[in-house]
């Protein structure tokens, strides 16, 4: 393809619109058409002239722009994965997950999303939930009856005679019995068990 005619074809004078194509032009057009067909079929020649390569790229762009180019699925995946590899700095094959396999990874994402949603809901529940109100009844603020209160025990005995100075055992029995009565009254009044 690299002939002097080719160079003339690109850089020579532009022929008249009505002028008959020369045999050289026809041969060149046929050769270029074959070249385009091979390229579209995926059989691009390994070597060609710079002019032919420029024309071929223009032809490819025009065809792609027309929307009729449909790359095979394998080629598409290959191209995308190559682009991804370059984007992540040329990492090894193991770090790049093929798109087809990546689509199968919806399950972990679903589990993670649901778990996060449940955790957020639990936190929201804790924040929104109000603690139970404690109501202090007015009756409880009233003073207790005297016999249910801790108090001096003098009134149980009066003055202690000298003869009974060491009768502490008898007195502690009296104190205990009296306070136990008050304690029972108080517990029963509160609905408890004595």
């Amino acid at each position: 393809m690299s002939t002097s005619d080719d160079n003339d074809f690109l850089t020579g004078p532009v022929p008249e619109p009505e002028a008959e194509a020369t045999p050289a032009e026809r041969a060149h057009a046929k050769t270029f058409a074959d070249l385009v067909d091979k390229t579209l079929a995926g059989r691009t020649p390994p070597a060609m002239s710079a002019d032919d390569r420029a024309l071929l790229e223009v032809a490819t762009v025009i065809r792609a722009a027309s929307g009729k180019v449909e790359l095979p699925a394998q080629t598409k995946r290959s191209l995308v994965e190559d682009a991804l590899k370059q984007a992540i700095g040329g990492a090894g094959r193991s770090t790049v997950v093929p798109i087809s396999r990546a689509r199968r990874r919806w399950l972990p994402w679903t589990v993670a999303s649901v778990s996060s949603a449940v955790a957020a809901a639990a936190i929201a529940l804790l924040i929104v939930r109000t603690p139970p109100r404690t109501v202090t009844t007015g009756a409880a603020l009233l003073p207790l009856p005297i016999d249910q209160r801790s108090r001096p025990t003098d009134s149980l005995f009066g003055p202690i005679a000298r003869d009974h100075a060491g009768d502490a055992t008898t007195r502690i029995d009296t104190i205990f019995a009296d306070r136990l009565d008050g304690y029972r009254d108080r517990e029963l009044g509160r609905g408890g068990k004595p």
Binding site: L141, S150, I175, F176
Partner: peptide, 25 residues
């Protein structure tokens, strides 16, 4: 539902007092 608690008077005869008296006895 709100819970009702009675205020605990500081001078009430309580279990601790009864335990101490019982031990002394």
């Amino acid at each position: 539902p709100p819970t009702t608690k009675t205020a605990e008077p500081a001078d009430a005869i309580d279990q601790n007092l009864m335990i101490a008296l019982s031990k002394a006895k």
